[in-house]
């Protein structure tokens, strides 16, 4: 198992993480001894088939789920063992989220949704920064609209703006293009790419779409709760090629583990 070259500082890291659901016969091990690091200012995709544990990994990394064993760090902050209050604060201040279902508050306008994390924190969002994101995402004339008045692509762009609004250390994106048509999906991915290149944002994205993964700097492949492959500078073809030979990868990983 290889990890990315530690040229840059680490934004998120997992060390020997185990996670299982259920007990006895019904027990499903979602993560087996996963160790992985995500560099600052990089765009990483986590790929894998359904049930591979990629979403569980993301949830554990983001402090949404607890680990059974192992530790997780966001920057220098250990996530494991934090109280609910501390976790909430951590998510508020250091993490941004983008979901497949957009998850915007229907009662708030686009602009209010973007500044929501700041409002919850009782702080004022940096207006220049917000303006810049809104401009980049081409949302300027949609700000006073409610989510129901926006297209799916627009809604997801609002969600992106919200994730970046508080300049988090890392943005976790869970299948951000899963509910979008190809064109809207590409827009969102291009923005994520831009935010990494121009703003130095760290992004960890879970996806099963090879063309989405191609926007990333690096792809981590997960199968049966284990990291089975780590690819830098991916292209859609390289990813598809890898996935074609997935069964071999899994077998090799299991052999290595045994």
């Amino acid at each position: 198992m290889s990890t990315a070259s530690p040229v840059k500082t680490t934004a998120v890291s997992a060390e020997g993480v185990w996670k299982a659901y259920g007990t006895g016969e019904a027990q499903v091990v979602a993560l087996r001894d996963v160790s992985v690091q995500f560099a600052s200012g990089a765009f990483t995709a986590i790929m894998g088939p359904s049930g591979s544990g990629k979403s569980t990994l993301m949830h554990c990394l983001a402090g949404l789920d607890t680990t059974d064993r192992g530790t997780v760090h966001i920057g220098d902050t250990p996530v494991t063992g934090l109280s609910d209050k501390a976790l909430t604060k951590l998510r508020r201040d250091k993490i941004g989220f983008i979901f497949q279902q957009f998850n915007l508050l229907p009662t708030l306008t686009a602009e209010e949704n973007i500044t929501l994390p700041a409002a919850i924190a009782g702080a004022k969002a940096d207006p220049d920064w917000i303006k810049k994101i809104i401009h980049t995402l081409d949302l300027t004339d949609r700000l006073s609209h409610k989510p129901t008045e926006l297209s799916g692509g627009q809604q997801q762009r609002v969600a992106c703006a919200r994730a970046l609004a508080s300049r988090p250390e890392v943005v976790f994106a869970d299948e951000p293009t899963g509910n979008l048509d190809t064109r809207s999906g590409a827009e969102v991915l291009r923005f994520l790419r831009t935010s990494v290149d121009e703003f130095g944002q760290t992004i960890v994205m879970v996806t099963h779409d090879p063309s989405a993964a191609a926007y990333a700097d690096r792809v981590v492949f997960l199968a049966d709760g284990q990291i089975v492959e780590d690819m830098t500078e991916p292209t859609a073809d390289k990813v598809i090629d890898k996935m074609k030979h997935f069964e071999e990868l899994v077998a090799a990983a299991q052999e290595a583990a045994a």
Binding site: K85, R91, D93, N103, L105
Partner: peptide, 16 residues
């Protein structure tokens, strides 16, 4: 439920 989950995910405290 989903909205509440989102709010909690992006940093709303239980008290809030």
């Amino acid at each position: 439920t989903r909205e509440l989950g989102l709010l909690r995910a992006i940093g709303m405290t239980r008290g809030q």
